[in-house]
């Protein structure tokens, strides 16, 4: 497998001696979806900002395709063309007078001609389900729409890696479902996705791999099931196994799920597993 982005011995201290990250080693594989899972304040956002050069490490380095990132203007442009970042709060990202104009910002900065940029914008709007909102100013969009505009803005730059900070924060059920569908379709197109979250169920639903963050360190890295089913490790990161994860563990205990079978991703999957085996278990009175 191809490593597209990696960090070695990465450390970052904010002014005022707040140690946000220390000694992080991580490789991001092309075409896979990586969740940075950890509680608030564990350094996920800070880490994401290193991956696209918004922050420059105090220690260690970031590598793009095995090459240490250069923080010159040129180096940063190269990094940011390949690695798109979607901030947690879409309002931090949208600035232009209308949706269409905002999405065109990135492609034009990449030096694309107007026609090519227009095409990119239209494609991104289509992919994010934003057609019809071209002329809306950002302050007249719903939270979910803002989020999708922010993603479209990154996507229009045709990145190979998309970084999303807490992508479901502030979205309602419908917004989250839409977002998940969108991320799935991006994964199918082969885009590498890295997202941060404190929600174990979201990591379970979307990720291939998980890096477990606690107090500025990565205390676990591996395939989804490897991390999520390790109760001790989750607790060490101040997270707790959700009902979904407990049911997966139960299913394994009861022999409903082979240890080497694909781990269920959603409530729906696990309910199906139980209801097939024990129809009475799911019946309710009346």
């Amino acid at each position: 497998m191809n490593t597209i982005l990696s960090v070695q011995q990465l450390g970052y201290t904010f002014p005022g001696h707040v140690i946000a990250l220390s000694g992080i080693n991580l490789s991001i594989q092309q075409g896979r979806c990586l969740a940075l899972l950890g509680p608030n304040g564990s350094g996920k956002s800070t880490f994401l900002q290193h991956l696209n050069g918004s922050l420059q490490p105090n220690q260690g380095s970031v590598f793009l395709e095995q090459e240490a990132v250069s923080y010159s203007r040129q180096g940063l442009n190269r990094l940011r063309s390949k690695v798109g970042l979607v901030l947690q709060d879409a309002d931090d990202q949208l600035f232009a007078a209308s949706v269409f104009e905002d999405i065109s910002f990135g492609p034009l900065n990449q030096g694309l001609a107007a026609d090519a940029a227009r095409q990119r914008v239209e494609q991104a709007m289509q992919a994010m389900g934003l057609v019809g909102l071209e002329n809306r100013p950002p302050h007249m969009l719903s939270g979910g729409q803002k989020k999708r505009v922010a993603i479209a803005g990154a996507l229009a730059m045709a990145p190979e890696v998309l970084l999303l900070d807490e992508p479901t924060a502030g979205l309602d059920h419908e917004g989250i479902a839409q977002l998940i569908a969108i991320l799935h379709s991006l994964m199918q197109q082969g885009i590498t996705i890295v997202f941060s979250t404190h929600d174990v169920d979201l990591a379970c639903r979307l990720a291939d791999d998980i890096a477990l963050f606690a107090a500025g360190r990565v205390i676990g890295f591996g395939e989804r099931s490897q991390i999520l089913l390790d109760r001790e490790m989750l607790l060490a990161a101040k997270l707790s196994p959700s009902l979904l994860l407990q049911m997966v563990a139960l299913a394994q205990d009861k022999g409903l799920l082979a240890a080497d079978a694909t781990m269920p991703r959603t409530d729906h999957d696990i309910m199906a597993l139980f209801s097939h085996q024990q129809p009475t278990a799911c019946q309710t009175a009346g």
Partner: peptide, 16 residues
């Protein structure tokens, strides 16, 4: 956020 999208000090956007 702007820097992440390659902002170089100018706000170029496509107008419709």
């Amino acid at each position: 956020g702007l820097a992440a999208r390659g902002w170089n000090g100018e706000f170029n956007v496509l107008r419709r």
